[in-house]
Amino acid sequence: MVTKQNRILCPICKKTKNKPKDMYCNKHSLAQKSLKKGYEDWLKAYGIMSWDEYIKNILDFGDLLGILVREVVEYELYFKLN
């Protein structure tokens, strides 16, 4: 259910978002940006790669993948699957 509180809190860490229309809090927004930038780099490096393939690959990196980026990926995957 989308409540008023849900609209102002980050769905991952429950911290207040900068703006209600933002998807995440400041930190997780940066992580999402970094994830997107990472995809551009991977696409450039391999020439061809789907977003799903990219996500699958980076999740295998263990501690090398930043924890905030991992949280964003896992959250987005969870919502995609459900």
Binding site: S34, G38, D41, W42, A45, I58, L64, L65, G66, V69
Partner: peptide, 12 residues
């Protein structure tokens, strides 16, 4: 730590 938390490995 913030930098590490946002890190995405890049292939080369």
């Amino acid at each position: 730590e913030n930098y590490i938390n946002l890190f995405v490995p890049k292939p080369y």
